[in-house]
Lab assay of single mutants.
Amino acid sequence: HRQALGERLYPRVQAMQPAFASKITGMLLELSPAQLLLLLASEDSLRARVDEAMELII
Rank of each mutant, 00 (worst) to 15 (best):
A48C: 07
L36T: 03
Q17F: 13
R49L: 14
S45A: 15
A19M: 11
S42W: 05
V13K: 02
A48K: 14
E43I: 05
D51F: 09
E55C: 07
H1E: 15
A21R: 00
S22E: 14
F20W: 11
M54R: 06
Q3C: 08
R12A: 12
E52I: 07
A21H: 01
L38S: 11
L5S: 03
P11A: 13
L38P: 10
S22Q: 11
L38I: 14
L40E: 07
A48I: 12
Q17E: 11
L46S: 00
L46E: 00
R8C: 07
Q35D: 12
Q35G: 06
R8N: 10
R47Q: 10
S22Y: 14
E7D: 11
L39I: 12
A19F: 08
A19N: 14
P33F: 11
M16S: 03
I58F: 11
Q3R: 10
H1M: 09
P33E: 15
Y10D: 02
R12L: 15
Q14L: 10
H1R: 12
F20T: 02
L37C: 07
E7S: 07
A19T: 11
Q35N: 11
M27F: 05
Q17W: 11
D51G: 08
A15F: 05
K23Y: 08
E52S: 07
L46P: 00
G26M: 13
R8G: 06
V13F: 03
R8A: 14
A15L: 10
V50R: 00
E52L: 09
L39Y: 03
T25G: 02
S42P: 01
Q35K: 09
F20P: 03
I24A: 00
G26K: 14
G26N: 15
E55H: 12
T25E: 01
E30N: 07
K23C: 06
L29C: 04
S42N: 15
F20D: 04
A21P: 03
L56D: 08
L40Y: 03
L56Q: 14
A19Y: 07
A34D: 15
R2Q: 14
P11T: 13
E30F: 05
L5N: 04
F20G: 02
S45D: 14
H1W: 03
E7K: 10
L5Y: 06
D51N: 14
A15N: 08
E43K: 07
R47T: 05
A48Q: 11
L40C: 03
S45V: 12
Q17A: 13
R47H: 06
Y10S: 04
T25R: 05
R49D: 02
A21Y: 01
A41N: 12
M16E: 04
L36S: 01
G6Y: 15
L38D: 13
Q3P: 10
I58M: 13
E7M: 04
E7F: 02
I58Y: 08
L39H: 02
S22M: 14
E43L: 05
Q3M: 06
L40K: 00
A21K: 00
S42Q: 08
L9I: 11
I24P: 00
V13M: 02
R2H: 14
M27P: 00
A41W: 09
Q17R: 06
R49N: 05
L9N: 01
L5D: 04
L31I: 08
L28Y: 01
Y10R: 06
E43D: 11
A41G: 07
A15V: 10
K23G: 04
S42V: 06
D44Y: 03
E52T: 08
A4M: 09
A53S: 07
L36C: 04
S42A: 07
R12K: 15
D51E: 15
Y10L: 08
E52N: 07
L37S: 09
R12W: 08
L5A: 05
V50K: 00
L36V: 13
V50T: 03
Y10C: 05
M54I: 07
L29Q: 04
L9S: 01
K23W: 08
M54D: 00
E30G: 08
I57D: 01
A21N: 00
R2S: 12
Q3N: 12
M27E: 02
V13G: 02
T25I: 14
L56C: 08
Q3L: 05
R8E: 15
E30K: 07
L36Q: 05
P11D: 15
M27C: 05
L5P: 04
L9F: 04
S22F: 11
L46H: 00
I58Q: 12
S32R: 05
E7A: 10
P11C: 12
P33K: 08
L36Y: 01
R12P: 04
S32A: 12
L37A: 09
Q3F: 03
I58H: 11
A34I: 10
E30L: 07
L29D: 01
H1D: 15
L5T: 05
P33Y: 15
I58S: 10
M54W: 06
A19H: 14
A4S: 12
Y10N: 03
E43R: 05
S32T: 13
A34R: 06
S22C: 08
L56F: 13
R2K: 15
L9A: 02
L31Y: 06
S32I: 05
R49G: 07
R47C: 03
R8I: 15
L38V: 12
R49C: 09
E43C: 05
D51Y: 10
A34P: 09
L28R: 00
P11M: 08
A53L: 15
D44V: 10
L29W: 02
G26A: 13
R2L: 15
S45F: 14
A21E: 00
I58R: 11
R8Y: 13
Q3T: 09
A21V: 05
L28H: 00
H1Q: 15
R47F: 04
I58D: 08
L56K: 15
Q17C: 12
L9M: 05
L28Q: 00
A19P: 03
A53R: 03
E30T: 08
L56N: 09
E30Y: 06
E30H: 08
L38K: 10
L38C: 07
L46V: 02
M16N: 03
L56E: 11
F20Q: 06
L9Y: 01
L31C: 06
L36W: 02
G6P: 05
A19K: 13
E30I: 05
A21W: 02
R49V: 12
A41P: 01
G26H: 13
A34M: 10
